[in-house]
Design a protein around this nucleic acid. Structure first.
Lengths: 206, 206
DNA sequence: TTCTGTGAATAGGTTCACAGCT
DNA sequence: AGCTGTGAACCTATTCACAGAA
């Protein structure tokens, strides 16, 4: 498949949100102009983004809301559900387990792991925190495509190595370190301090 | 000042982390090649990024670690501290208040706000959660440059409007909606469900 | 010799503008 | 008339490649 830029994929996610709203309101069509306005981009950008995957619209009319919704869900691989394991039962892990947006979109956290004996065994949103030493054996029994890493920086790479060896192919990383993975594994790092620093930069340079 | 790309600013943040490590290890110089390897980029990229702000290196030698650290902190505006207010005392807000990376980098959360009577008055990491209705009057007394919005999607825009009217110039947004702000206000949105969707895309298209 | 600093070349993403359906 | 789909033009970011300083 033709290489699609990360920014295009991110915008598809954004369009999808507004399409779901339009669906809920029972709207039958939507134009590239309206999707653009809602998503903070331009109509040409919307049409270009969609054109990488096909011609979904009707000239003079716009896009059929239910069809385009389905198509984008399909492109993003959201028609199936995903099992997600979470490593790191700290504050951030806790927030993520509760985060409604994940389940809503078909990402189901199926297990939580930690090192800390004080956390192991406690119940979190219906799940028992397990000792991270069971990570490999659990994943062998119940494989997972996606893992969320919310450990301290020091242990993140080591955890990731173990996840990769256990067949995890996609990792969402909240530890503030770049992670090394083989080319067939995808990592997204969310680094909140770094986001604040870009804000600091913009305050300092005006 | 010449327009610097967001990606350059983000990479400077990354370099800064490794420079601080190198400092801690007492290293005196570091080359663009090494910074590149650590930060997952190329040596030409490192040199280009730095060259937008001056010539900090010594040919044949590399960069003096303490000097470059200082320069980047200065560029990013990290030599001063920032007062940060947090709106939304949910799970995510809780994780953010505790997050060590913020304080470490000079971002001090000075107040927490919520709507929910059950949360108002409770102590969080030494701060009492205040009724969000005091937002404007508090900011008038003690202005803040930066706010973190961790409210539900529905209230985010309204909260942001009030922050903007109160003089906040930079917002880190965890609510899963694009926010409208005037051009002199900077917003960074962190949308975790969207990150997972880009991972889903990469799993679906291989 | 080593490694920086930087124009020039390349690649990639966005916007333009218009032909072509409905 | 209205709105899509798309090549072409434009703009921005990255990589190359080399002159020049230590």
């Amino acid at each position: 498949m033709r290489k699609i830029s990360d920014s295009t994929v991110r915008r598809l996610s954004v369009y999808l949100r507004f399409l779901e709203q339009a669906n809920a309101q029972g709207r039958s069509t939507i134009s590239s102009g309206e999707l653009a306005r809602l998503g903070g981009t331009t109509s040409a950008q919307v049409r270009k983004d969609l054109s990488f995957f096909g011609s979904f619209g009707k000239r003079g009319l716009g896009y059929a809301v239910p069809e385009l919704t389905r198509r984008i869900r399909d492109i993003l691989g959201l028609e199936r559900g995903y099992r997600v394991v979470l490593v790191g039962a700290g504050r951030m892990g806790g927030a993520l387990v509760q985060y409604h947006g994940f389940r809503q979109r078909g990402f189901h956290i199926t297990a939580i792991y930690d090192q800390d004996a004080r956390k192991i065994g406690s119940r979190w949103n219906g799940l028992v925190v397990r000792d991270v030493k069971h990570l490999e054996s659990d994943l062998k029994k119940d494989p997972s495509d996606i893992a969320i890493v919310a450990t301290p920086a020091e242990s993140a790479q080591q955890v990731v190595d173990r996840l990769v060896r256990s067949g995890v192919k996609a990792i969402l990383n909240f530890a503030p370190v770049p992670l090394n993975v083989p080319p067939d594994v995808e990592v997204k790092t969310v680094n909140m301090a770094l986001e604040l620093e870009t804000l600091s930069y913009s305050l300092a340079n005006r």
